[in-house]
Amino acid sequence: ETIRIAGNFAGEHSSSQAMLVFKEEIEKLTDGELEVNIFPAQQLGGAAENVQAVKLGAVELIWVGTAYLTRTIPELEVLGVPFQFPDRETAFKVVDGPLGAKLDEHLAEESLASLGYMELGFRQLTNNVRPIESIDDIAGLKIRLQPNETHLATFRALGANPVAMDVKELYSALEQGVIDGQENPFSIIVVSRYSEIQKHLSDTRHFFDFISVVANKDWLDELSPEHRDAVQEAMNKAIAFQRELAIEQESEALDKLIEEGMTFTPVSDELAADLRSKTADVATSVRERIGDELFTLVDSEIAASTE
């Protein structure tokens, strides 16, 4: 039997590399009874389409930025609040813990089975106008954002002029100066070659993004118990591999971006505090929208890890 895995990340991204690990592991664990074909880089369509495809069973597995799943499962927005996680360790503790289990139930309602979370990383701001030294420097910048309500609200709260735009148009829009900036994790900024067309870089860390690995639930349920265990075991290895690699790639990516000529302006403590206070209302409104229950689970986990 063949497992088809679709994703929208470039072949060199850590998450695509991890799928190769998964392929190797599962073929070893099942003596080749389960084979794997990987289709990275939008070969089978973009992120939104991948989500539809796995729901409908057109592919067995996908890996996709968790934000794309919030359109189907709004509860996942609990992970998409600005300035929520102090560091990646805490972030993973939250999704690997009770909150993750709770979210799995919501996924199951949409006939999706979560196999775990990889790291997409902290999202960082780049622009072509000025270094971001204080909160006022963000004012009026035309920033491309994913078409996501929380993201748009966050940047509007920061005084920017957010533009929702298809990622396919982003490079040339930045190149031609149609918009001033964009925000993405360092590793994505590198592989998308935005350093060629963007001058200023900051470590704003305004969101921490996860990558969800999701299977079609009916398909997974129909596998023999041994095969099902093998899938989860192989994916655990792949996820562990990816999280290691992502840490490495993030710091390498920052070095590379500076080397390629971007001006890196670290976020000062005052600016960090300003960013948080300006966006506090956005977090509150997300909380009101999806209810306190899930957030309590996040809060207790964060409190435990910062003690």
């Binding site: 539809q52 409908l56 359109r71 189907t72 994913q146 078409p147 996501n148 309500e149 748009l152 929702a164």
Partner: peptide, 18 residues
């Protein structure tokens, strides 16, 4: 069939089903 199964999916900037 597909519209029915994916009706819960919302668009990002306007709040209608995708």
């Amino acid at each position: 069939v597909v519209a029915y199964e994916t009706w819960s999916e919302r668009l990002g900037a306007i709040n209608i089903s995708s």
